[in-house]
């Protein structure tokens, strides 16, 4: 858990802030199930998936491709519903089979392929949320955005378009665009996939800094086991489809995390455990695929 919970995302200038107290952001996923297209193809993506995430916890989810990670994230984000079980956010139902899925600025997503608006400048992108919700004026939002961007070393790019930035910068902007909404939960779906090693480790550093500064609950999907351990308080391994949590690994490494930890015995032992758990599932997934093909 992150101890330094100075909530620096609180809006300045007496702007009406979104309701998020430091204690917010606890997720309770209870026996969640998701069947796509029940009458037709009937793909069971999640089954009896249960997990608890404390407020302010950094949770990473790993698992074979197609196991249902994005399905779970979409349910948390409110892009899609679940077909059984329930998901609670701070004790209130967020998703049940009866509830219509509803996205909101309290649970924002940073997407796998990036979703910055290409026709908006960096500043327009970042200020989009608070302005469209009417909780900040454009000037207030600009000021806030500039503060937050400069904190991740992005001072002089406000009038650039996303297409003019490197992938690493784009991701940083996207994370800031999410955090300016002061969400309860930050949802990241393989945000650093396909990045080169250097960009990736710089991105880790920025994310960890933002995490310790904001104390947000983070739900982080990845395929990279090292990344998962390095960033998270808790790494969850998902089974092959239908997915549920097979293994929970508590990461006891102290924060701030240092790169030297990557070579520590403790780290390597955790990695070995994860490799084994994931490999087992990957083999199952592969065999299931073979059966489907036959």
């Amino acid at each position: 858990m992150n101890t330094a919970q100075t909530d620096t995302t609180a809006p300045a200038d007496g702007a009406k802030g979104p309701v998020c107290r430091a204690s917010d952001g606890a997720l309770s996923i209870r026996n969640a199930g998701k069947i796509y297209d029940p009458e037709g193809v009937h793909v069971e993506a999640l089954k009896d998936c249960s997990l608890e995430i404390e407020a302010g916890e950094f949770v990473a989810i790993v698992g074979p491709s197609g196991c249902g990670k994005s399905t779970l994230l979409n349910a948390l984000a409110g892009f899609d519903g679940i077909t059984s079980g329930e998901i609670l956010l701070d004790g209130e139902p967020l998703a049940t089979p009866e509830l219509d899925p509803r996205p909101g600025p309290d649970r924002v997503v940073v997407f796998q392929h990036g979703a910055l608006f290409p026709w908006k400048t960096v500043l327009e992108n970042v200020t989009y949320g608070p302005v469209v919700q009417g909780i900040m004026s454009q000037e207030q939002a600009n000021k806030r955005a500039q503060e937050m961007l400069s904190r991740v070393g992005l001072n002089d790019i406000e009038t650039s378009y996303p297409g003019q930035l490197s992938s690493g910068m784009q991701r940083r902007v996207e994370i800031i665009r999410a955090l300016i909404n002061n969400p309860r939960v930050l949802l990241l779906d393989e945000p650093f996939r396909a990045m080169d090693t250097v960009t990736k480790s710089a991105s880790h550093q920025y994310l960890l800094e933002l995490y310790s500064a904001t104390g947000k609950t983070i739900f982080f999907i990845t395929h990279d086991l090292e990344e998962a351990i390095f960033l998270a308080d808790k790494v969850l391994v998902m089974t092959t489809r239908p997915g549920y949590i097979k293994k929970t690994l508590q990461v006891k490494l102290p924060r701030p995390r240092q790169y030297s930890m990557l070579a520590s015995e403790e780290f390597l032992a955790m990695k070995a455990q994860l490799v084994e758990a994931v490999h087992e599932e990957a083999v199952k997934a592969f065999e299931a695929g073979e059966r489907e093909m036959a």
Binding site: F111, A115, F117
Partner: peptide, 29 residues
């Protein structure tokens, strides 16, 4: 139009009308 652009806008609190004018229209230019 990538679905994620629309999803992102909806997450940030855009109404269907705002999504149309501010996302769909510019994305189609």
């Amino acid at each position: 139009i990538p679905r994620q652009l629309v999803d992102a806008a909806v997450s940030f609190g855009a109404s269907p009308r705002q999504v149309f004018w501010r996302i769909v229209l510019p994305a189609t230019i």
